[in-house]
C-alpha cells in the first residue's frame, strides 16, 4: 500500500514532533509512505515518474491519504478537496485543542464521502488512530482492487504460457498473474510478512 502523508506546515516544535511521530507510525505499519516531510525520497521520485508517464496527477498513484491539519495551512483544504473529488481513502487528523478550522466544516455531511475519516487525536490516542486507519484500508475493497497501472514486457515463452493457461477459461491473463503473485509469492514470503509486522499484531 502506498500512502501520501501531508503534514500541515508549522513552526510549533511540539506539533512538528507529533507529525514526525505519525510518519514513523505509518512506516512501521509496513506501508510505503511519501510525505512532504521528506519530499525527495526514492518512493516519491518513482511515483512522480509513473505519474508523468501516465499523464496523471502524482496523487492518483497513491492508495490513500493521511493529512495532519492541526496548523492553519491552505494546502490542507487542497488535499481534502482532492480526496473528496476522487473518493480516495483519507484520514484527516487534527490535534485536540487545535484552533485551525476544519475545512470539511464548510460542507454538508452528505458531501463528505465515507472514505474520508476525521479524527481528533491526543498523544495517547494517536497510535491507535493511525493503525486503525491502515487496518481498515487493508481489509477494505480498495486493497483488493487493482488500481495501479504497471507495464511489464514479457518474453514470447511467457506469453505462450499465459495464453495456454487462460484461454478457454473465464480468467484473464492479468487476473491469473495477480492471483499467482498474491498466493504463490506474497503469502509465502516470510521476510515480507515480518517487514509488515505491527504492534497491533496483524
Amino acid at each position: 500500500m502506498k500512502l501520501y502523508y501531508y503534514a500541515s506546515r508549522t513552526e510549533n516544535s511540539k506539533l512538528r514532533g507529533q507529525q514526525e511521530t505519525i510518519r514513523t507510525l505509518l512506516e512501521q505499519s509496513g506501508v510505503t509512505v511519501i510525505s512532504n516531510l521528506q519530499p525527495d525520497d526514492a518512493a516519491a521520485m518513482t511515483a512522480l515518474e509513473r505519474a508523468e508517464e501516465a499523464g496523471q496527477n502524482a496523487l492518483e498513484q497513491i492508495d490513500a491519504l493521511v493529512v495532519e491539519g492541526s496548523a492553519s495551512d491552505p494546502e490542507v483544504g487542497y488535499f481534502l478537496a482532492f480526496a473528496i473529488s476522487t473518493k480516495k481513502p483519507t484520514l484527516f487528523l487534527m490535534e485536540k485543542g487545535s484552533t485551525a478550522t476544519n475545512p470539511l466544516s464548510y460542507l454538508a455531511g452528505k458531501n463528505v464521502p465515507s472514505q474520508v475519516k476525521v479524527k481528533r487525536y491526543s498523544e495517547k490516542t494517536l497510535e491507535s488512530a493511525v493503525y486503525e486507519m491502515v487496518g481498515d484500508f487493508e481489509s477494505s475493497e480498495f486493497a483488493e482492487t487493482p488500481t495501479i497501472k504497471f507495464t511489464l514486457r514479457i518474453t514470447p515463452l511467457i506469453e505462450n504460457y499465459l495464453h495456454w493457461k487462460t484461454h478457454n477459461t473465464k480468467i484473464t491473463k492479468a487476473d491469473f498473474l495477480r492471483k499467482l503473485i498474491l498466493e504463490e509469492v506474497i503469502k509465502k514470503d516470510e521476510e515480507f510478512r515480518k517487514y509488515r509486522g505491527r504492534k497491533d499484531g496483524s
Partner: peptide, 9 residues
C-alpha cells in the same frame, strides 16, 4: 455537484 471546491474557498 462539485462541493469539494468549497473545502478550498
Amino acid at each position: 455537484e462539485v462541493p469539494e471546491l468549497k473545502v478550498i474557498a
